[in-house]
Design a protein around this nucleic acid. Structure first.
Length: 439
RNA sequence: GUGGGUGUAGCUCAGUUGGUUAGAGCGUCAGACUGUGGAUCUGAAUGUCGCCGGUUCGAGUCCGGUCACCCACCCCA
């Protein structure tokens, strides 16, 4: 009569049932395939790190979100809240064996103790890819290509990659003698859509003693709208005077033209001077990817360039650029947009157990097909055929194989297309070939 | 972390001004159908009304707390 423990999960932590886990694994497979196709190599790092490793990179906000505790040995430890900082530690620790440039991808769970919302969890997977050891714009450009190919591989066409370059803002701030106020300016500009020009202006003057004239120039930058070509032209006119800004503009120009030349549709990339990204370590290109049909869920793939990722851990300069796919946010978005197939089985072929006495024959056929790479499930009970077929369809099997005394006497199997409800008798030796053609 | 909203069977919801054994549809399971599944019919199971406590003769219905989810702020994937 012991009291039952209530089965439950923590806030922001979720279970994944097969209907969700099957597409989730599919996303992982596609991400892995695309990353590898560009030459990114896999790495992994521990979920738990010394707290000092994780602290002090992205400001107080991310510090507050750390799951932090003292382990059994009295060590101050924390769960990683992204894959970038652990990578910085990793790179600093192993640079000698890695060599540069080094391209890696890393997929795994991260933890953030912040408030939950739609598409915002406390445990979620990121799929990062980064190139370190080079400042070449080619690497910045490649990030866009990877993101594009990734979403294409996932069968998502309605998305836009928003691109900006912090050099432009930094250059302008430098020119306005506000280089020390970068963070305040970013935060203020970020509020533009909500509080408007005058509001931002007011915040700037209050938080950073910015004059109206200075604010005007910053706002002119942040509010810039138009096609990529128009924006680039106006940027050159208005801000090209500063060396840093000019460099940023040049990099964006090159990015836009190269991506286009590489065959990526123009409308997939949008220059957006309003995206700044809160993370302090970005210094050049920044990227955010939005789904056309669900922009409110936030960016599903973001990243940028950082001058010196590993400076906390090594004196060696380690510039890099990369981005992170928010696997679980994307999955939540796809679920909401009905982009997920509801399949509850990873195997396409179902073998009806017509009669228990033939179990050996059923399993032999199943093994033959499995050896050819086809997933096959044999039903465990010799229930009525109708029930088994109903089960098979509900689970999402594509093909059912049926054989009883009559079939075995004739040396054939019935192959049934569960969706079309058509069946045909096929000689036992041809089953593999016929199935291969159908799947 | 702050503010607002929601919380009744697996799912979508109904439950009159607090009043006897808490309902529907869908779904699930069994049977009609001992070699063939989306139809029909018959029957069945399932809820500590999120959880804890309070007010009351009596609470799903009121109050407080708590947990979870949703929305906004903040930040971000």
């Amino acid at each position: 009569m012991a009291d039952l423990i209530q089965p439950r999960t923590l806030k922001g932590f979720r279970d994944y049932l097969p209907q969700l886990m099957i597409p989730r694994e599919h996303l992982l497979e596609q991400a892995r395939r695309v990353y590898r196709s560009y030459g990114f190599a896999p790495i992994d790092t521990p979920a738990l790190e010394y707290t000092e490793i994780l602290l002090g990179k992205g400001g107080e906000e991310s510090d507050k979100q750390l799951y932090r505790f003292t382990d059994h040995g009295g060590r101050d430890v924390a769960l990683r809240f992204d894959l970038t900082v652990p990578f910085a530690r990793f790179a600093a620790e192993h640079m000698g064996q890695l060599g540069t440039p080094f391209k890696r991808y890393h997929m795994g769970p991260v933890w953030r103790g912040e408030n939950t919302q739609r598409g915002r969890f406390r445990e979620f997977w990121q799929c990062d890819f980064d190139t370190i050891g080079t400042t070449a714009n080619a690497a910045d450009i490649e990030v866009v290509l990877v993101i594009h190919d990734l979403f294409q591989a996932l069968g998502i066409d309605r998305f836009t990659i928003h691109v900006n370059n912090r050099l432009i803002l930094n250059g302008l701030l430098e020119e306005l003698d506000l280089a020390g106020k970068t963070k305040e300016m970013l935060i203020a500009l970020d509020k533009l859509p909500k509080i408007g020009r005058d509001g931002v202006s007011a915040v700037m003057s209050e938080k950073a003693n910015v004059t109206l004239q200075q604010a005007e120039r910053l706002l002119n930058l942040a509010e810039m709208q138009g096609t990529n070509v128009e924006i680039l032209a106006r940027l050159g006119q208005e801000f090209g005077g500063n060396a840093k800004a000019a460099e940023g503009i040049h990099r964006l120009e090159e990015l836009v033209s190269t991506v286009k030349a590489a065959g990526v549709p123009e409308d997939k990339v949008k220059l957006d001077l309003s995206i700044a990204r809160g993370l302090d370590y970005y210094t050049g290109a920044v990227y955010e990817t939005f789904l056309t049909d669900l922009p409110k869920i936030g960016s599903v793939c973001s990243g940028g360039r950082y001058d010196n990722l590993a400076k906390l851990f090594t004196k060696q300069e380690l510039p890099g650029v990369g981005a992170s796919l928010g696997l679980d946010r994307l999955l939540a978005a796809m679920e909401e947009l009905n982009l997920l197939q509801s399949v509850a089985t990873p195997a396409p072929v179902f073998v009806v157990q017509f009669d228990a006495q033939y179990l050996g024959k059923y399993q032999k056929m199943a093994r033959t097909l499995r050896a050819a790479g086809i997933g096959v499930e044999v039903y465990p009970d010799a229930k009525k055929v109708g029930q088994q077929l109903q089960f098979a369809e509900k689970r999402g099997f594509k093909i059912a194989l049926i054989a009883g005394p009559d079939e075995f006497a004739q040396g054939v199997w019935k192959i049934k297309d569960l969706a079309k409800r058509e069946e045909a008798s096929i000689p036992a030796n041809d089953v593999l070939a016929v199935l291969s053609g159908k799947l």
